[in-house]
Design a protein around this nucleic acid. Structure first.
Lengths: 112, 112
DNA sequence: GCCGTAAGCTAAGAATTCTAGGTATGGGAC
DNA sequence: GTCCCATACCTAGAATTCTTAGCTTACGGC
């Protein structure tokens, strides 16, 4: 099927929320975050690594996530990220904001 | 109430769709498009003029809308835009894409 | 030993938005 | 008549985010 995955440039600004939400479930490394988002979106969302790593740095700078070097299940060296308390608050804020925004857009799209 | 309108930087990429959708209902000038989006979104979406006019130029360059100088109901000189056939096709494409994207995001947000 | 894959990273460019200005003019208040 | 507000258009520059297109390291199977 012609199911090209959507790049996230269709909707910038949602990447932070997706990462925070992913980490709110379990600690994970960058590569794993990409895979989780891809799989849980039914292979429709593709996060480029060139978007991901800068995003992780952004989030860490803001104190919303914390990364430490560790080892994955496959015995690979990786930077394991976990969400902070501030990150959970931020996730709540962004989730709410996103809902408001998509509702507003839906209103415009459906107006007479 | 503290109802600050959302700027559209929360969701870039949706502006073109909103403009096309607005013009798919009636011909309108830029200022009127801003007002329509604001009102139909219940005052939650605020399109800055610095975003709008470049967007209109983009859309016209792509052949999705056409503008002509005219006069508004208030006897003001204004550039009246109308959507083209290609613009309607593009609107359909973007609407579909947007639905796909928000569905994919919802899946990630709700995954276990 | 080789190679594919997991895993991390960066630089340069493209695209879109905001900020913060500017211009022009119609109509109402005075 | 003059002033001012709202309507209406526009642009330049900065900021942000994303993509493209690379590079690097190291595990484990063959």
């Amino acid at each position: 099927m012609g199911r090209k995955p959507l790049k996230n440039d269709s909707l910038p600004g949602s990447l932070d929320m997706l990462i925070l939400r992913t980490l709110s479930r379990r600690d994970l490394h960058g590569y794993g975050i990409v895979q989780f988002i891809q799989q849980s979106s039914d292979n429709e969302l593709l996060v480029e690594e060139g978007s991901l790593y800068p995003a992780l740095q952004r989030l860490e700078l803001n104190g919303w996530i914390e990364g430490d070097w560790g080892v994955t299940a496959n015995n690979r060296r990786a930077r394991i990220y976990k969400i902070t308390a501030a990150g959970r608050k931020q996730l709540a804020v962004e989730t709410k904001q996103y809902a408001k925004l998509t509702l507003a857009i839906a209103r415009v799209m459906e107006a007479e």
